[in-house]
Design a protein around this nucleic acid. Structure first.
Lengths: 370, 370
DNA sequence: GTTAGCACTCTCAAGGAGGGAGTGCTAACG
DNA sequence: CGTTAGCACTCCCTCCTTGAGAGTGCTAAC
């Protein structure tokens, strides 16, 4: 009943997908024969195209239109047909160099990763900052802004920093604050949110002499800050490359197969997705739990609004300790080989950078030859 | 020669501008008469419209199209005609409440300001973080990540924080680092970039016993961080509300007077402006140097690519010490009264918040009734 | 100064024709 | 049986035309 997949048909499918990815134009039989100098006539190719269509890998919008891959077609291409290349060494070098230039500035890595992903894959990118499963307290500093206003700098494991100002009931000297911060740092060291909460509860029951009203207030502040941070960290996704994605023909009315309205509506939707993170929600935890590069194509998404988009994601980080997710999002007609190799490279690069930070033994520190 | 501006003509001009701002549709004489129950016939209004056109305040695209304000028309409206309202008390209360909820989290104020501006003015917003003219050092903390890796947290006056990791040549204990950070904090306290540079130079000439190789390396790090920060702070503009702006009819092909292609091209341009900050470059320093709310309308911009947009900007901050700029950007057909009052309110709100932080005497700290 | 009346201009949407692209089918060929 | 030439057919896209509608500008009267 269903046609079988001959070598030639596989080859033709590969050509169609590659061609459509490149040109964004439906692929015609005649054109394939001429452009690639196939040894068959266009009629033969047409038969194969019809077979591939019956198998569900291709469609066409109307009788006299060329073929376009379906989601299943892209999936088959990604799994079985595409050339598994890496980024060129020159590109890798260039990217490494850019990261080298912001060495030490952890908060810039995320931005840079987003920018590089977007530029290299010519689509939008998304990056979540590296996060520990559990925020763990490391250090506290209390800096006097003026007599009754204090800047608290909370440092957590993994180089995560949060600042918070608060007012005092009574004036305190900078030295006083410093001593207090030292005591607190020791008391709270390595605790998680629940640990701090516990301490606060205990403390309330049997107050220690060194921990007075003020100290308890600070612990409450820390608790609150950690809770808020964990919550907002889960939602926060950095994204970039909107402009790159918008230069894809899908978003250019004159080039879009359907009319201009659609192109703009699509754009608005895309913006919405990137900004709100809706439609990406499940993807992130899912990617965090997986190894290697994940590809989700069009209708494979659980969200309806994502069915015109594909996402290429990978986890990065050290062990299970500090991890994040980064990836590329764009129309289903996406240069999968390139996107995948870019995501793979950047995730491994980020992982190495983080490993240097936390393990130290992996490589000599970046500062070494500065 | 040129017609004169009678009371009625002023009134009609006001109506036309308001009407066009609201409906985004060219305003016809007949429609004005009916909608506002004017006591004149449409022919009379037509005469006045023609006069206003001759004065340069209105145009129409073709013979049988209604009138549309010119940039000069908007300008005249903003200066002389529009109702100078404030945000409603309910809105003010709501906004204050939102800021109250992120009290103490200085870095969230910027985001919040951007979001509120965008939502209230239904356009894109831009906010620069509050900056001192000169970055002034306040405090340094060195936190051991592992034996040879250190996280430096630099705190500057104005609650500005920068983190930077670096590797060590030789292992150091956390205590060692803490003591060192304390010495350095004292040595560098209140210095500007040039001050630190000077210290570094002096130090190189006659090394003090307490300041060894390591300390010099840290000072160099601080110098570098301050330089980099000052540079990138100048360029960094936070922006939000793209989605809000895109819901303006100018960006919706079906509603745009000209064709869909234009709408999308416009959109791409707008994105580009917001992302790169090109076209805004001069505006920021200019706004920093001015008092009150600045309005720049369409062709008044020095940049050509901005001639379809208007910007409403205001400085915020305390004295000349710590200041930033915030504002709204959107199509020239912008709800100026609302944008201006929003920008005015938020800038004063932010100024108050900053004043509390730095002066303390202006109001009781926000934490007071938490 | 104001107004009614009207011709004129220009846009916009709908309908129709012609050209073109590409397929699907059929019949013949090796 | 796979391959191929030939051809009818389908559907899109662009251009053109047409008619309706909107709104102006002008003129002449009030």
């Amino acid at each position: 009943m269903a046609p079988n997949l001959t070598e030639r048909r596989l080859f033709i499918l590969k050509l169609v997908v590659q061609e459509f990815i490149e040109t964004a134009t439906p692929v015609a039989s005649e054109m394939l024969v001429r452009k690639f100098g196939l040894g068959f006539s266009s009629a033969t190719v047409r038969n194969d195209l019809a077979a591939l269509e019956e198998l569900g890998y291709l469609t066409h919008l109307h009788t006299s239109a060329g073929r376009v891959p379906t989601d299943a077609g892209y999936r088959f291409f990604v799994e079985n047909l595409m050339d598994r290349t890496s980024l060129s060494l020159a590109e890798q070098r260039m990217i490494r160099h850019q990261f080298y230039q912001v060495r030490g500035e952890l908060d810039q890595w995320i931005q840079l990763a987003g920018a590089v992903l977007a530029r290299t894959a010519q689509n939008a990118s998304l990056v979540t900052p590296p996060r520990a499963e559990q925020l763990r307290f490391k250090n506290l500093e209390l800096i006097s802004i003026h007599e009754t206003m204090v800047l608290a700098v909370l440092v957590f494991h993994g180089g995560i920093i949060k600042q918070q100002t608060f007012g005092l009931d009574a004036a305190r000297t900078p030295d006083d604050l410093r001593r207090c911060a030292g005591r607190m740092s020791d008391a709270l060291a390595d605790l998680t949110v629940s640990g701090v909460e516990e301490l606060l509860a205990q403390d309330a029951l049997r107050p220690l002499p060194t921990f007075g009203e003020f100290e308890r207030a600070v612990i409450a502040l820390v608790t609150h800050a950690m809770q808020a941070f964990e919550e907002q960290a889960r939602e926060h996704i950095y994204s970039d490359g909107l402009l790159e994605m918008l230069s894809q023909p899908e978003f250019i009315p004159a080039l879009a197969r359907d009319d201009a309205e659609r192109a703009v509506e699509r754009l608005r939707r895309a913006l919405d997705i990137l900004k709100s993170g809706r439609g990406l929600g499940q993807l992130i935890p899912q990617a965090l739990a997986s190894e290697g590069v994940q590809v989700i194509i069009g209708g494979e998404h659980s969200e309806d609004e994502m069915r015109e988009y594909s996402v290429v994601l990978a986890r990065y980080g050290v062990g299970g300790a500090v991890t994040g997710v980064l990836g590329v999002i764009g129309p289903t007609r996406m240069a999968y080989p390139r996107s995948i190799s870019t995501v793979r490279y950047i995730s491994s690069l980020m992982s190495n950078l983080l490993a240097e930070l936390y393990a130290g033994e992996s490589r000599p520190p970046l500062e070494g030859n500065g």
